[in-house]
């Protein structure tokens, strides 16, 4: 496309910056095939919005596997190690007490609490990691001013291609989405 030659800031005639182009599709099957077409056209700053995760759409969009499990594993295991170390310190240094004639540092008794602390760290890492990777919480988004978009949370399926994409060109994007079977296509302003 000739998009690279154009100025990178798109705006309406009133001077409002443009967020991108949004297209609505009728069914999960339609949006699945449309996502494949947008992916093959080589866009990067775009997204599919659906009331539930459509089966297999990650591949249709070409999303890379998230590295969330790695983060969770690291945090969870360090939680368990930390929990174990703390118990060992308490039992041998902090408040060394003879319990049932066992050695101060008998590690077997520290396993349950170390496990629980590991689980606790894992759970927090999972939820917070998911939110941080998703750049949430975020209270506002240009799409949320769009009445049509608000129905995605009910039963609509939407593709939005953003103006920040290097290949973005309002007219070409509109044609692409219409060809992919969109029931409606509209420009979204960045309010």
């Amino acid at each position: 496309m000739a998009a690279a030659a154009k100025p990178r800031i798109f705006q309406t005639e009133q001077g409002t910056p443009i967020f991108g182009v949004m297209a609505e599709f009728a069914t999960p099957a339609d949006i699945y095939h449309a996502a494949e077409k947008v992916r093959d056209a080589g866009f990067s700053d775009w997204d599919v919005y659906s009331p539930f995760p459509v089966h297999g759409i990650d591949e249709a969009m070409g999303i890379k596997r998230t590295r969330l499990p790695l983060l969770v594993a690291v945090v969870g295991l360090s939680g368990a190690v930390l929990g174990f170390g703390f118990q060992y310190w308490v039992a041998t240094q902090g408040y060394a007490t003879v319990v049932q004639g066992k050695p101060f540092g008998s590690w077997q008794t520290f396993v349950p609490v170390a496990f629980e602390i590991g689980v606790l760290f894992t759970a927090f890492a999972t939820l917070l990691g998911m939110l941080i990777f998703n750049r949430l919480p975020r209270w506002h988004h240009p799409l949320m001013c769009n009445e049509r978009f608000l129905k995605v949370s009910d039963d609509r399926f939407v593709i939005a291609i953003e103006a920040t994409d290097p290949k973005f060109d309002p007219q070409a994007v509109r044609t692409l989405l219409q060809k992919a079977g969109a029931t409606s296509v509209e420009l979204v302003e960045d309010k």
Binding site: P51, N134, P137, R138
Partner: peptide, 27 residues
Amino acid sequence: LGWRFSTRHWHRYEKAYILLAGISTPL
């Protein structure tokens, strides 16, 4: 928390859900 039903979000969300399910089971 500003959830907007984005598929890129759903992708990590589903992974997080499975991870939480996986850790809740031994818990």
